[in-house]
Design a protein around this nucleic acid. Structure first.
Lengths: 204, 204
DNA sequence: CTGGTTCCGATGCGATTGCATCGGAACCAT
DNA sequence: ATGGTTCCGATGCAATCGCATCGGAACCAG
């Protein structure tokens, strides 16, 4: 066997570099040369990992999509972090879990600002690029299923909570965008989100 | 006086060409040459109207922002179009007006798909370009004020309805994006929006 | 050590980009 | 007509782009 390298690992590293650049200058600010520099590899290596720039962007989108989804799920598995050690209730209520997930899907906090910018850039790109749209849809489908399940749990036994899940997801994305362009502050967006969730319980 | 031309008119024409290109290929698909071709003027004319490409994009954003805002306002002034000639109630209720405006702000219908793509592209651009963000914010401020006023009217006498207006605006933008990338169909998004509005009345 | 295979850094290429430049067309007061 | 302005189409230019190419380094079975 001849020389071998960790292709998958390298692809992820390059994807991280792509995300960095997208965060800074948007999708149009991504060039093969800059990616290679940020990933600390040569252009040749990048070209070997991805046959075309399009393919690289698609991989990067799937990459960050998985990252966000995984974080949401893990947050859910761990349970309400802000609650103290002692368990006041019988178990974390589905309502609490939903609020937690919603707060995680909406990338409002400063620490997730970069991820939010990357996400928004890819969403806009997907609007004019069917391939990116395909990749993006699968991430959204996963998130919607997750949220819908939580809504169903939280609201007793209503059918499925599809509409509520879609409302929550769209609201989260809209708020994220509005924070990014400075129309809302992080606190204002948080307030809107919490108010919506409160209204959701009031109706079930 | 030497030769004179309708500068403002030409700028608008160029802005329309920019919007056409943004709709087709996103912000990165806008080149001075293509703009000149689509606007049926020479590159020199474009360069005379706008000192730089940035300035041209900014103007185009303000242009379409005014177009959307104006349409929402005019729709409001005319009153509920779908209602028949005979006036059943005393006057179009604020609730009806709000539903109308919401349906107009969320660019869901096929006929507004292009405007939606353009809007989304600029929102994403504004996330990495402070100047575009400034321009975009003024449009959002106007829309939010309009919606907030309607919400306040519709809900009797609650303070101002800021939170509800922001919720509605963010939800509309999120739904628009989700339709554009094909995660939701136009009908599904419409359903979500109507359900949200229904819930809004139930709580006032 | 050697041969065969995989990998990649460097370089080149054609196309395209935003912008600067400038000679002359277009226009109007005189 | 004519002179003085304003305007713009054509062209040039340096920079940058994605991608193709290729000689040699890196590596392992034999």
């Amino acid at each position: 066997m001849p020389k071998q390298v960790d292709h998958e690992g390298r692809r992820r590293r390059i994807a991280d570099a792509v995300c960095l650049l997208v965060d800074e200058h948007g999708l149009e600010g991504v060039t093969l040369r800059d990616v290679a520099t940020r990933a600390d590899v040569s252009m040749g290596a990048v070209q070997r990992c991805f046959r075309t720039k399009e393919e690289m962007l698609r991989f990067a989108l799937a990459h960050i999509g998985e990252r966000v989804t995984a974080r949401v799920r893990s947050r859910l598995a761990v349970g309400p972090a802000p609650s103290a050690a002692g368990e006041p209730g019988p178990a974390p209520s589905a309502a609490d879990e939903l609020a937690l997930v919603a707060g995680e899907v909406a990338l409002l906090r400063e620490e997730h600002r970069a991820e939010a910018r990357i996400w928004l850039a890819f969403v806009a790109g997907a609007a004019v690029n069917p391939e990116l749209a395909r990749t993006l849809r699968s991430s959204y489908a996963g998130l919607e299923d997750l949220v819908a399940r939580l809504v169903a749990e939280a609201s007793g036994g209503t059918p499925a909570g599809r509409v509520e899940a879609r409302t929550l997801l769209a609201l989260a994305d809209g708020l994220t965008a509005h924070v990014l362009i400075g129309h809302l502050t992080e606190a204002e967006a948080e307030e809107v989100l919490q108010a919506h969730l409160a209204g959701l319980w009031g109706r079930c």
